[in-house]
Amino acid sequence: MKTINRQRFDFSTLGRSVARGATALAVVLAAAGAAHAQAQAQNPDALKLYQRGLAATCANCHGTDGQGVVGTGMPVINHLNSAEILKKMLDYKSGALTGTIMHQLAKGYTDEQLQTIASVLGKK
C-alpha cells in the first residue's frame, strides 16, 4: 500500500475556513491568489474541475460558464471581469448592495469561494 502515490493538493480555495476580516478587496485577492498558486502547483486539473464546479452553482440563473441567455430579464454577467464580480458579490454579502435574491445567496458563500467564483466567471 505504501507504494501508492496518491495525488494530493490544497483545497484551501474551496474550503470553508473564511479569512475573517479580510474584506478589503486587495487583501482577499492577494490571499486567495497565493493559495491558488500553491494549489496550482499540486494538482491543477482537479482544482480546476472543482473551481468550475463551484462556479456552476451560479449557472442556473446566470448561464453555463457565466454565459447567460440574453434578453430574458435576468441580469447577464458575462461583461464583468473577475474584480467586478467579486466586488458585487462581497457587497451583496455585506449588505452594501441589496437585491431580490442575490444578497440572500451571497451570504451562503465564504469570501474565498466568492473569489474562486469570480476568477472562473470573470471576463478574461
Binding site: F11, L14, G53, L54, T57, N60
Partner: peptide, 14 residues
Amino acid sequence: NGWEINPAPVLTNT
C-alpha cells in the same frame, strides 16, 4: 481519474 473527491461541494436552491 483517480483524484481525491472535492471535500467541500456547495449547492444552491431557488
